[in-house]
Design a protein around this nucleic acid. Structure first.
Lengths: 125, 125
DNA sequence: TTAATAGTAAACCATATGGTTTAATGATTC
DNA sequence: GAATCATTAAACCATATGGTTTACTATTAA
């Protein structure tokens, strides 16, 4: 049962790995942006990019692996659709840090600075 | 002048590249989590990890490059502090997609239905 | 049935990543 | 001044990434 918890944990961590990795490339973010306006077949999706079709195909596979894109095959045409669920997971991760910037520009920044000063001092030998 | 706009744009894209790249590794996310509770010196920061100190040092450099960590050198002690500003940029990027999941299971489906009813009155099969 | 279209697979390349170990650098302390 | 401590640098390794080009497969159209 501890193993269950561990597996669960690493699953979420792995999902975060995959999603953030998927998002760290400009081309892939543009693909997502394009898909946010509706499903498109791959050739059409790839057209605006300067790189080769196989290159775009690889990027799509990265997005699929992260669960961000779902593919529907219809004859020889592959249609891609956006799936935002993994973005939600990423958003939840980010949300933890939201408090730091919502508070950061006024009271907190001063507080943190004195705090870290105290920490630094106590760490010096 | 157009080049200014272009540069500006790619700057944001590059920042997103760096931030998402920084976040796509479990170790680095853990480092951030640790730093969210206050500044720490590097040895102390690295202690809980099983990898070598140089490995952690490299991860920290990735975080610094993304602007997520700021270093203060004090004698031989380097203190690291969290800087959430780049996370805010990432959050803003994500926010565009928020509507897709916040509306998807309830309001949106209704909205889309009425929308499509309006749009497709003449297009129904 | 031949040709064209949509897409992937495979082989290749350069560079990046994530880790290691063994120096090396620079402050501190004794 | 010698030893120790905090940290990076450098060299190395295996694998991943992002791109290319050239097949190849499968479906559709002529």
């Amino acid at each position: 049962m501890l193993s269950t918890r561990t597996t669960q944990t690493t699953f979420r961590e792995e999902q975060l790995d995959l999603v953030f990795k998927a998002l760290c490339d400009k081309t892939r973010r543009e693909l997502l942006s394009r898909l946010s306006q509706g499903s498109v077949m791959i050739t059409e999706l790839a057209a605006p990019f300067e790189m080769s079709l196989p290159a775009v195909s690889k990027h799509l596979r990265v997005l699929e692996k992260a669960g961000l894109v779902e593919r529907t095959v219809n004859g020889r045409v592959h249609s891609c659709a956006l799936n935002v669920a993994p973005l939600k997971t990423a958003g939840e991760w980010l949300q933890y840090y939201e408090k730091f910037w919502s508070e950061s520009l006024n009271a907190l920044s001063a507080y943190v600075q004195t705090e870290s000063q105290l920490n630094n001092n106590s760490q010096q030998e």
